[in-house]
Design a protein around this nucleic acid. Structure first.
Lengths: 328, 328
DNA sequence: TTGAAAGCGGTACCAT
DNA sequence: ATGGTACCGCTTTCAA
């Protein structure tokens, strides 16, 4: 690998000059500039980011921390972050915390030690002290606390919409899934639904469940054992909804005639289920992009229009809910 | 952040001594060692990996390149790699190439510039020149070329098993999906199936398709339009299989009585489909772990039992295939 | 057993 | 406009 010294020698100038040309900083005569650039090309020189990072105490890396890379919602977020960062000439280190605090701590350490200039976190512990005393900014993604800037979708409205659509389509004995208690976003969508259900003339039951694959199947079985009368299920995410749909069909429930299901997230697979899943769509890709933009604005000290960015959710009508006249 | 100088000062020794203690290299009196370790604890000192990396031209980072983070097969691979690396005290940078050559090049550049000590690649271009002239080892994952060490599952056997099980269960007019031509792994499973189907007394058609979400739906529609008579489909991966299953049910085919489907991969969602998907399971998590181990053995100059590691695949019988007497 | 100092590959200050 | 050089934080050789 060629170094800046090789380039300097080749161009017949000092390393200082090469550095200036490289970074477009300070003066450099047009001719010298050309000399240097030619040398760079000839040697196929790429600056050593590590050396740069050591001196400046800043790299060109952004850390992205995901809670569970297996839940298809998160790869979607990641792609949004990635695309935006790439456009800004930055690089992404993705860490998968696997819902384990220990892994999360480990990744934060790695990020620190590699001089990332910022972190975007979507983990389940983002709301703890882990992110304090960092020397670079943190943006929360699909997570909310008072303390950090964040990007998320409107959970209250999401829950509300799910409940409204469910009720409007005639379900009377509704099971409402409640995601992890420690996640504000999960609780918002839960609360949004509860408020709506309380106002409506329906019975409803609450089941608490995690967001992971593993638990989804068990939860689905339990649900139908405990509440066989249920005629409408509002799931806490699409993964749970998929498990519920599977179990419902397995025990012979007819969907959507006898039982309606509404998911949450709109992961790519939801439309491949059969019947395809009606769900509340979170604009995951856009959320990722927005988070990246927000972080970059903070890093570049741009004035922020808002510290917290809320994106809208939409009801995606597919086939696990019954048809009904439009009435808006 | 405390530096090695702070620690040295605190312990009343030189930085060289601290470094030796830190790395367990060279002599250090037991008492001095304790002195240093105490200082490290008191200051909560963590060595600066960037500085270390600059001098040694080696970091503790491994680059993992995935072709498409949205295909659930790859996160599963990633988790295997991640867990093994973590146990070895190394850290992972995950890059998502998004099936784009340009992104892949970009990530490789990032990996280089950050002194990764090795790359594990599962991308669609791993079989090109991109990985030549690297100063660190490369291991291919779920990919095969002559040139690089690799870890993959037995595609020939997988294709063969899929075809056997399909034929054994009575399908007579079979559609065989062929994945991307440029991927050896995809072609192996295709060839395995072709060989078997040729020997059997059945008709079959070949449809070429990509592995991505986006194309899966269109492909499914086309398939049934062009070959409405089909009574058995061997998919190139579970994503395609899911799309096919969806379309089949949509147009009223009865599964598995009228049409059987066998997928490939066994992604976590396959068992949540309804009917749950019969498929050829690749041990993705284990493949990831093996790739990590292989890479580490190469990095540490351990003698290699074998440069290419092939893992077995298994037929997972679920509900998109008909029941049949055991006959092994 | 320990420490001084050179060097990894850049950046940026200060002279010229 | 350009160059010399100290410095970022760590490792390693060499001398003591």
């Amino acid at each position: 690998m060629a170094t800046i010294r090789d380039v300097a020698k080749r161009a017949g100038v000092s390393v200082a000059t090469v550095s200036r040309v490289l970074n477009n900083k300070g003066y450099a005569h047009e001719d010298t500039r050309k000399l240097v650039n030619d040398a760079i090309k000839e040697l196929n020189y790429k600056p050593n980011e590590v050396a740069r990072s050591l001196y400046k105490k800043k790299s060109r890396l952004i850390g992205l921390l995901l809670p569970d890379i297996r839940n298809p919602f998160f790869p979607e977020l990641a792609r949004g972050v990635e695309d935006e960062m790439q456009e800004q000439g930055l690089h992404l280190i993705i860490g998968n915390a696997d819902e384990k605090l220990e892994k999360e701590i480990d990744y934060i350490q790695t990020f620190k030690q590699n001089n990332v200039i910022g972190i975007i976190s979507a983990t389940n512990h983002a709301e703890t002290k882990l992110y304090e005393n960092l020397s670079f900014p943190v943006v929360l993604l699909d997570r909310i606390t008072g303390s950090y800037p964040s990007v998320y979708a409107d959970g209250l409205d999401g829950g509300k919409k799910a409940a409204q659509e469910m009720v409007r389509r005639g379900s009377k004995r509704i099971a409402l899934l409640r995601g992890p208690i420690e996640l504000r976003t999960a609780q918002d969508r839960f609360k949004g639904a509860v408020d709506e259900l309380c106002d409506a003339n329906v019975d409803f039951q609450v089941i608490t469940s995690s967001f992971s694959f593993h638990d989804a199947e068990k939860m689905a079985k339990t649900l139908f054992e405990k509440f066989p009368e249920t005629d409408g299920i509002i799931a806490s995410n699409d993964l749970s909804a998929a498990a519920i749909l599977h179990e419902a069909l397995r025990i012979g429930r007819s969907i959507p005639d006898d039982l309606q299901i509404i998911g949450y997230d709109d992961i790519p697979l939801s439309k491949l289920l059969f019947p395809s899943l009606s769900t509340i769509r979170q604009p995951a890709y856009d959320m990722g992009r927005e988070a990246a933009k927000l972080l970059m604005n903070i890093i570049n000290n741009k004035p922020l229009a808002q510290k917290n960015i809320q994106l809208p959710v939409t009801f995606i009508e597919r086939q696990t809910t019954r048809k009904v006249e439009k009435n808006d």
